[in-house]
Design a protein around this nucleic acid. Structure first.
Lengths: 215, 215
DNA sequence: CCATTTCAGTACCGTACGGTACGGTTCGCA
DNA sequence: TGCGAACCGTACCGTACGGTACTGAAATGG
């Protein structure tokens, strides 16, 4: 559950009133609980105690509501950059493990899974507008954090790679493997969460074997 | 496009008549072209020149049709096991690269993407029956092929790992990274296919760095 | 105190879908 | 030739959704 402060923060850059934010929050809850099928305009209006007419005035149509939900959720996730100074082998490894755990935590969150399912379901038609949006505002964020971390590692002489994207791809693959897809397909996420720590450490260890500068 | 022989093969183990196979083929085409929204019972009946009544007689209801489509498609993908004999470092690497390319090729196929989107869209409700089915009959197949290959490599003294699943997870992650998700979200697959070869070789090279036995 | 705006609540409309029922046709079979 | 099963094509039904229109109440502002 997000705090009121986080919600207000999320509204700031999006031209959303507080009331609209509450409505979007309720819409997200409906989506998480029942999937896209449960996300009807009437259902959102009932759950949020607002009228359908207001929904259409604020968001245009159903697709506008979906876009607003993605933008709203994305703007709530803030990824703090790590201080690049004073990086040694041990602290780099620790930062990478934290990053890996955060990545797994984010990807396994209810809201993230629900929104990804929604965007994937809509990807077939209409140019996959939601998919691009999710990618741009979600993945890009965490990708930048990783890129900064990797770049700092290279600057400090701890990592060796030519193509940062390639290195990030390897890190991402080692960390996530096919867990994301399994969760998207409905595998119970609760059971696997307890293995995240060990998995993150193993992945980082492997990544450092590949890209860590030999001492 | 699949051959008639492949279709007949697919029908063999499923108790499906040839006619029903043709209908499922048409249903898959509809799903690929227009997504789940386009997969209506009336649409399938019209495209396959059969009656809705026959659809319900053969498959029970719409969910039964979806299950049949997944089972039908899965039974068409046959993964030939590799001869485990005469494995040296060079041939193991070659086999791994072939496996990696095949994996990327399968995951980027229209039908695979459409079925994964379908199962993911239905994952929220109803216990994710389709998701389990897709995982069991699709991923399990290629997973066994990889497991056999890895085991053969270990038997030949070329690979070193304790946990085969962990090694396979690393291989899968290095090969696929986040490409699958990007394609599921609608990223144009045509553009990226040309990079598959290079990507497969890089991934295998990295995998061998991690799990290859030092000479 | 009144005028204007905003919005909840509801009723309504058109459409499209899942599922069923029925008439007509083909085909196998005795 | 007659019979029955399978099946196509279509019409039909109930429902649910997206979107619009209307009404009345609360708030806002001079």
């Amino acid at each position: 559950m997000q705090s009121v402060a986080a919600t207000r923060e999320a509204n700031a850059g999006n031209g959303l009133t507080e009331r609209q934010g509450v409505v979007l929050e309720e819409a997200l809850r409906l989506l998480v609980d029942g999937g896209e099928k449960a996300l009807t305009t009437a259902g959102v209006a009932r759950a949020a105690n607002c009228s359908k007419e207001s929904l259409y005035k604020w968001f245009g149509d159903r697709d506008g509501l979906l876009s607003a939900m993605i933008g709203f959720q994305a703007s709530k996730v803030r990824t703090q950059d790590v201080a690049a100074s004073a990086l040694d082998a041990e602290s780099l490894s620790r930062h990478l493990v934290v990053f890996a755990k955060d990545l797994l935590e984010v990807l396994s969150g209810d809201v993230s899974l629900a929104l990804n399912r929604l965007a994937i379901g809509q990807a077939s038609r209409e140019g996959s507008k939601l998919g691009h949006m999710l990618q741009e505002r979600g993945r890009r964020q965490i990708g930048r954090r990783a890129a900064a971390l990797l770049e700092a590692g290279r600057k400090a002489g701890l990592l060796a790679f030519d193509d940062a994207d390639e290195a990030y791809g390897a890190l991402y693959g080692l960390v996530v493997s096919d867990w994301h897809l399994k969760m998207l397909l409905g595998e119970e996420a609760g059971e696997m969460k307890k293995g995240f720590s060990r998995k993150a450490e193993q992945a980082v260890s492997a990544f450092l074997t590949l890209y860590g500068k030999k001492v």
